[in-house]
């Protein structure tokens, strides 16, 4: 069953690699939409109805935490699980994120794409399938 994933990140290279890999190596397991900041993400949430959001913290216009606050204020899409993926671990932000309905956290520069996908799967309750990609 195809799951709808919303990637919220301003790092175009990360998005490219991540999306390429998801589409080509995971055989249509995910349908992907992209938002470059919090404002775009709020709009995409309305039209795309994602099953999961992978959220970067540091973005222009509206950053990850601002997006989460706004989502809570509007009480919009609060049922959608959120996985934070940021370049470094910031305990303060994670703990605020958890209060704002975040379900998981990955440090994207440390994690392989496979392990990010494993995290996503576990959040969506999907049993992790073996893919062609070896774990390195």
């Amino acid at each position: 069953m195809t799951k709808r994933l919303l990637i919220v990140d301003d790092d175009k290279i990360f998005i490219k690699i991540f999306r390429d890999t998801l589409i080509k190596d995971y055989n249509g397991k995910y349908e992907v939409a992209v938002a470059n900041n919090g404002i775009e993400a709020l709009a995409k949430m309305e039209e795309f109805h994602p099953d999961l959001i992978v959220l970067d913290l540091k973005m222009p216009e509206m950053d990850g935490l601002e997006f989460l606050r706004e989502r809570k204020r509007r009480d919009q899409g609060m049922h959608i699980p959120v996985l934070i993926s940021s370049n470094f671990f910031d305990a303060e932000k994670v703990s605020e994120g958890l209060d704002l309905g975040v379900n998981g956290y990955v440090v994207k520069s440390d994690y392989s794409i496979k392990s990010i996908v494993d995290h996503m799967d576990s959040l969506l309750g999907i049993k992790t399938e073996d893919t062609k990609e070896p774990d390195i």
Partner: peptide
């Protein structure tokens, strides 16, 4: 410091991910 760490981790993470992807056959 955290800005610089962030700025350095970005490209480093990218290189690492590309390494991961390029390891594959496809």
């Amino acid at each position: 410091n955290s800005l610089i760490v962030h700025e350095l981790r970005g490209p480093l993470g990218t290189i690492k991910k590309i390494g991961e992807v390029m390891h594959g056959e496809r």
